[in-house]
Nucleic acid binder design. Structure first.
Length: 587
RNA sequence: GCCUCCUUAGCUUAGUGGCAAAGCAACGGUUUUGUAAACCGUAGACGUCAGUUCGAUUCUGACAGGAGGCUCCA
């Protein structure tokens, strides 16, 4: 009986009901607690509280047990409508609930409350199981505490949020916990350390990663890939300095508006200098130094260059949120009628890059203007209309998944954001394409058209990686540190069986000089040296001993598929070249 | 920034109000290895600054780092 009921309730109802049971348990243990809200989230639920005295994570187990006994008590959930007046009376000791009641009655939303047995009543729109017996008491877990501002605003009081996981069955809960453990293993911060890729040093500062040789090689491979892709497609490199006089940001308008800028460097006899937090103004100035003809357009300037942003300390994390971020930035200066073909070219390049890096799961947010709010946007309405239509059809033609965000465009232009879903289902914004009709105006950019008249070009911003650092973080986690051959910082570990074979190992290395190979020279057993190479996730291991010297060959072992056997050097080279060319990840 | 938690050697971890324990890594030696950990030895740490105390790595506070979180809306 019980089990069939369990399957009748939706997981959402179970989670929502558990949130109420958590609140009931909290009130029972700490009666003076003020209640916030308790919604359902991915994998579970949370509830926000203002406790009279701070509680510790150790208290969660007791709350959990309390919830279990409430479940076993077989309490009914019952909803009831009521008037704002009655609601205010009912929740008079609950300031946050009163806040909500005020808001809902202002919006003329109907008010409902839900009773859990006769022990607890919460303001709630509903969506519960009928009886707590439908909840499997073993399939949920309170996981952790966190601070959360009331309604997400820093101006409001900080509440204590209790997070819980909840599933239909104990097995699903355990599977989820196992998956979280697996995720920890491929965390780029952990792998960065284990694989010797990067580090962050206290004395240098949070959000300012340093790269070891292997990380620097990976970085360079990724950046060079983009540089080559761009130059193949008619983009030209420029170079810009990393600091500038404040004057530049007065022109661009960033000085008043942009809040993540580092404070200026004060000099005695000169104007203030700033670290650049973005590149656009530098690009604009460079364009402006020369007269341009319509024949020059589209002009595609690119630079891989580092920006410095003072991100809030609590928001920094590994490589994915840093204070020194390198962008594969690009600005295309073009005539309005070139917008469509330029964006199409950008989409080609992004599609190519994602394919080569093995990213298959992504979608695109198309941010367009709000037609009801036209005065908000600057620039030629015709350009807006045409470019928005072009963005939509170009994406649709490729069959890429997309969502249209009406009113999400910036005041200066519509944009495309590429959102990548990683192996763990988390979403990351990578590439971005953005039209800009503001900067050309502010910087008074011009070109001369065929009729000899001055015209204002449109600027299209574009980044494929977004930021090299964040991209590397995502890439490391995407491959769990086991990079495909073309990206592996060390592609081949050459393992001599004993010191006698060291010379042959060196000979192999020099014959394989087109690949990134390392010799394990340490005085260790063969097994140990192979283990070390495996732990470093090096794609190929070549064992060199007497047999190999005799046959002038190498015994090949692949990171994933194990021993492949003896191979002549030429055929090994062919195989590796092929694998690199195809950018595949198998042996 | 704010909330909760965390900080012991290069890494992973143990432990204590009274000499801080181990494995891996490093270094020195022995060994000369056939596909995921040979053996012996050496060196190395309680994040910083205060306070409480006869005595603090341990208790308290501040600071610095780190982790998770800070509208997925009753």
């Amino acid at each position: 009986m019980l089990t069939s009921q369990v399957f009748m309730s939706s997981l959402e109802e179970i989670r929502h009901s558990l949130a109420h049971l958590l609140a009931a348990a909290v009130l029972k243990k700490y009666p003076k607690t003020k209640l916030g809200i308790g919604p359902v989230i991915e994998n579970g639920f949370y509830y926000d509280f203002q406790f009279p005295k701070p509680i510790a994570e150790a208290d969660l187990e007791r709350l959990e047990n309390e919830m279990r006994s409430l479940i076993k008590a077989g309490l009914d959930f019952k909803g009831e409508k009521l008037t704002p007046l009655k609601a205010k009376k009912m929740f008079k000791g609950q300031p946050f609930k009163l806040d909500l009641i005020k808001e809902f009655s202002k919006d003329k939303k109907p008010l409902t409350i839900y009773h859990t047995g006769d022990i607890f009543t919460d303001l709630c729109r509903g969506g519960h199981v009928k009886n707590t017996k439908e909840i499997n008491p073993e399939s949920f877990k309170l996981t952790h505490l966190a601070g959360a501002y009331w309604r997400g605003s820093e101006k409001n009081p900080m509440l204590t949020r209790i997070y819980g996981l909840a599933f239909n069955t104990k097995q699903e809960l355990e599977e989820h916990l196992k998956m979280v453990e697996e995720a920890k293993k491929r965390d780029h911060r952990k792998l960065g350390k284990e694989l010797g890729l990067f580090t962050i040093i206290d004395e240098i500062g949070p959000g300012l990663p340093l790269f070891y040789p292997k990380g620097a090689i990976l970085r360079r491979l990724v950046e060079n890939y983009i540089i080559e892709l761009q130059e193949k497609n008619g983009y030209v490199p420029i170079w810009i300095p990393h600091i500038t006089k404040g004057e530049l940001y007065k022109i661009s308008g960033h000085l008043d508006k942009y809040d993540a800028m580092y404070p200026p460097m004060k000099l005695k006899d000169e104007a203030d200098y700033y670290l650049k937090p973005m590149n656009c103004p530098h690009f604009m100035m460079l364009y402006k130094t020369e007269p341009h003809s319509y024949r020059d357009l589209p002009l595609r300037y690119t630079a891989t260059t580092t920006n410095y942003r003072y991100e809030k300390s609590g928001e920094l994390s590994g490589l994915t949120r840093v204070r020194a971020l390198t962008q594969d930035d690009c600005h295309v200066f073009c005539a309005p009628e070139q917008i469509e073909s330029e964006i199409n070219l950008m989409l080609d390049m992004i599609g190519q890059a994602y394919q080569d890096f093995g990213f298959k799961d992504f979608w695109i947010r198309i941010s367009v203007s709000d037609p009801k709010n036209k005065e908000k946007y600057i620039g030629n309405p015709k350009v807006w209309q045409e470019s928005e239509a072009a963005l939509k059809t170009l994406i649709a033609k490729r069959g890429w998944r997309s969502e249209i965000g009406v009113g999400e465009a910036a005041f200066y232009g519509p944009k495309l954001d590429f959102i990548l879903k990683d192996v763990l289902g988390r979403e990351w914004q990578l590439s971005t394409i953005q039209l800009d009709m503001n900067l050309p105006k502010r910087f008074e950019l011009e070109y001369t058209d065929a009729a000899g008249k001055k015209q204002q070009p449109v600027v299209i911003h574009r980044a494929i990686l977004g930021s090299t650092e964040r991209f590397l973080g995502i890439l490391i986690e995407h491959f769990g540190g086991a990079f495909p051959l073309w990206l592996a910082p060390v592609q081949i570990a050459i393992v001599p069986i004993s010191e006698k074979h060291l010379d042959y190992a060196k000979k192999l290395k020099s014959e394989l000089s087109e690949f990134r190979a390392e010799i394990s020279e340490e005085n260790e057993t063969l097994g140990k040296k192979i283990r070390n190479a495996q732990l470093q996730k090096i794609p190929y291991i070549l064992v060199a001993g007497d047999k190999e010297i005799e046959q002038n060959s190498a015994n090949v072992r692949h990171y994933k598929t194990g021993v492949l056997g003896n191979m002549k050097l030429e055929s090994l080279k062919e195989k590796l070249r092929e694998e690199i060319k195809n950018r595949t990840n198998s042996s």
